[in-house]
Design a binder for these strands. Structure first.
Length: 640
RNA sequence: GCCGGUAUAGCUCAGCUGGUAGAGCACCUGAUUUGUAAUCAGGCGGUCGUCGGUUCGAAUCCGACUGCCGGCUCCA
């Protein structure tokens, strides 16, 4: 535990201590340090609201002022249990009610592990520690918010009140923390997206469904063009596939019905729907028939997988089966069918199919958040069909692409997570030799990238190892964006093959990869990353001509026409406003270049350049400026 | 989905304990023709999220629903 975490963890104890002074019946669960501070989960009949914070903080300050030493004490499990039964764990003294959550936590501590208490003043808590020497070392703290949380994160468990706070080693650091939060709030993509008119979410359309407005659409189009260009360089073929596919496709892939709770419900075929309605079929029966498969289909999948992947209870007589469509929750099945649409030779491989493919997933309503957590989103997806020998090189190519994307956007604070299988788990399918090879390929590729990476056993997808790019944003939040996954399972389930040099059929390996993840989430993160100050190549409006009076409107319009011809997104502000007002408006709308023109400029064929970042940059020849902005756009420069 | 908070004009918000809505910005019109972050004046605009209840009377009190915000949980 770092020093800061120790301070925060100690602050959590002080929080519990203070709450007990006010509400002696409070029952506590866990109180760990977290990224932004600490929390303690408490069960209490009184509903704590922010109005209570002042009172609690006052007690906390008193405890801190007393400089109570933290004392560690190792006890036996039996002693701990009897203390818990007396309500002394996370308590000030014996109480009528047992410390029920602490007793439960005790049962979760493995046999043989040391059990320790920490005491400060009269407060005692079951705790592994460590803690600061005494409470006065918690130099500055503040309670921030209260939320609810289920005990151990399980919705079947009691719901607790989670009191959040933060603490630092000095007041100055606490102030900085809140200043940073303020800044983060200003950068919130939902705020900026609305202010700049980049996207809209409309109740009449649906929660979690992004409407890209004209300005936002420009940003998206530029990102797509950028990616497309990189894809061509790397030998990808772009494809287009529809937003829906037959249910059987997802039964083959194994995603339906096993992931149905995170998908939009299936769409039955209209005539079949009418038929079963006339039979008086219940909703449950309809669902069962949609999920069911025929015996030969089940046998085929089970044989390919080499184990029972379709259980017998899903097998129904063909006359009972109900067919229909699904909004696609992923693009791979469609791409797989393109691969399978013609015979493939090893000479054709790798086949790299890319698409900006829109997928739909049923996220719980409480999970939706602006552009970063949505129900319909477009992946910059691609699937590579490769031979065993090509896996390592292709994975490396994918990683280079993600790196190129992030570097171009100036997103340099990222790390790479390599998700490996947990050899003890049965979740992971396929043979161990393949896994070893694929994991080695991923690790080698990650290492060759020259960025920090971590190995995460157990974090692989069930079908193969994966590599995730985790980008840190201004809030210090981690965003999982790009991902590269090796897949041995889907090619088998779909019965894919290619003819090898030996003339025999071989099963290709698939690589799934999406450098942005989704365009929606990525754009949301980009908005916050740039605080709406997009580099010229991405800016919806790249330059605005500001005539000092309407007397030079004609000159302004001639410049607009010329720059438009040369591919610059430019407008002119021909309003009757004074220059100061025009500048203010353009600045608030975060236009990278404001071009001031008056009679002087008109006479000299010049422009007065004002950049969003540097302010007045003085006059230059019109053509020099156009060349400058053209090259910044072409180079995707990050200068403005 | 669960817990808590919240919902007033396009935006940001005011409207104390119930007496049938207000400001600034934006927008429109007119005047002004302006030199690096707001020219002046006038005007338009809301069945106060929806539905129901209490009341002589509801933006205000109560309930349900919906959206949003903060968390929890989940993310092939």
């Amino acid at each position: 535990m770092t020093e800061l975490e120790t301070i925060r963890h100690s602050a959590a104890h002080v929080l519990a201590n203070a709450i007990l002074r006010i509400w002696p019946e409070a029952q506590f669960a866990a109180g760990p340090p977290v990224d932004q501070g600490f929390y303690y989960d408490v069960e209490l009949p009184h509903r704590i609201s922010p109005e209570d914070f002042e009172r609690i903080e006052k007690e906390m300050s008193a405890i801190i002022a007393e400089a109570q030493p933290f004392q560690r004490e190792v006890i036996t499990r039996a002693e701990a249990i009897s203390m818990g039964k007396r309500g002394e764990l996370a308590g000030l003294a014996p109480r009528p009610e047992a410390s029920k959550f602490k007793l439960d936590i005790l049962t979760r501590i493995p046999e043989g592990e040391e059990i320790s208490l920490y005491r400060n003043g009269v407060f005692t808590d079951l705790c592994a520690g460590p803690h600061v020497a005494d409470t006065s070392k918690i130099a500055s703290f503040k309670l921030t918010h209260v939320a609810s949380a289920f005990y151990l994160g399980d919705e079947n468990n009691p719901q607790l009140q989670r009191i959040y706070g933060t603490a630092f080693a000095s007041q100055e650091e606490l102030d900085n923390h809140f200043a940073l939060l303020e800044e983060a709030k200003k950068r919130d993509h939902r705020r900026i997206g609305k202010d700049l008119g980049l996207f809209h979410i409309d109740d009449a359309v649906g929660q979690g469904l992004i409407l890209w407005t004209p300005k936002g659409a420009i940003i998206r189009q530029e990102l797509q063009d950028f990616i497309s260009g990189e894809l061509s360089k790397q030998g990808y073929s772009q494809v287009f596939t529809p937003h829906i596919g037959k249910i059987g496709l997802y039964k083959t892939s194994g995603h339906f019905p096993y992931y149905k709770e995170s998908q939009f419900p299936a769409i039955p075929e209209p005539d079949q729907l009418e038929r079963i309605a006339s039979e008086g079929c219940s909703c449950a029966e309809m669902t069962a028939r949609l999920e069911a498969v025929s015996a030969p289909f089940a046998a085929m999948l089970n044989e390919r997988a080499g184990r029972e992947v379709v259980t017998s209870d899903r097998i129904k007589d063909p006359s009972q089966l109900l067919d229909g469509f699904m909004l696609k929750p992923m693009n791979c099945p469609h791409h797989i069918r393109i691969f399978a649409s013609q015979p493939r030779s090893y000479r054709d491989l790798p086949v790299r199919l890319a698409e900006f493919g829109t997928v739909y997933r049923w996220e719980q309503s409480g999970e939706l958040n602006g552009m970063t957590r949505v129900r319909g989103f477009t992946q910059d997806d691609a699937h590579l069909f490769v031979t065993e020998e090509q896996v390592a090189a292709e994975v490396r190519g994918c990683l280079e692409l993600v790196k190129k994307v992030l570097t171009t956007l100036g997103m340099t604070d990222y790390r790479v997570r390599v998700g490996l299988r947990d050899p003890d788990s049965t979740k992971f399918t396929g043979n161990p030799t393949q896994w070893d090879l694929a994991e080695k390929a991923c690790l080698d590729a990650a290492a060759s990238l020259g960025v920090p990476f971590t190995k995460e056993p157990g974090e692989a997808a069930f079908y193969g190892p994966k590599i995730d790019f985790v980008v840190k944003d201004v809030l210090g939040r981690d965003w999982q964006l790009g991902t590269v996954q090796v897949d041995y399972v889907l090619p088998v389930r779909f019965g894919l093959s290619y003819t090898g040099a030996d003339g025999n059929a071989h099963v290709p390996v698939m690589i799934h990869r999406a450098p942005f993840g989704s365009l929606e989430r990525f754009t949301g993160v980009l908005i916050e990353h740039f605080a709406g100050n997009f580099p010229v190549w991405l800016a919806p409006e790249q330059a605005r001509i500001l005539p000092v009076s309407q007397k030079v409107s004609a000159y302004a319009e001639s410049i607009v026409a010329e720059m438009k011809m040369r591919g610059v997104r430019v407008t002119a502000d021909l309003s009757a406003d004074k220059l100061g007002a025009k500048i203010r408006l353009a600045q608030l709308e975060k236009v990278p270049y404001m071009i001031v023109v008056g009679p002087k400029e008109e006479a000299a064929g010049q422009l007065s350049v004002r950049s969003r970042k540097n302010g007045d940059e003085g006059s230059i020849a019109k053509d020099d400026f156009i060349q400058r902005i053209e090259s910044e756009i072409r180079d995707r420069a990050l200068t403005v």
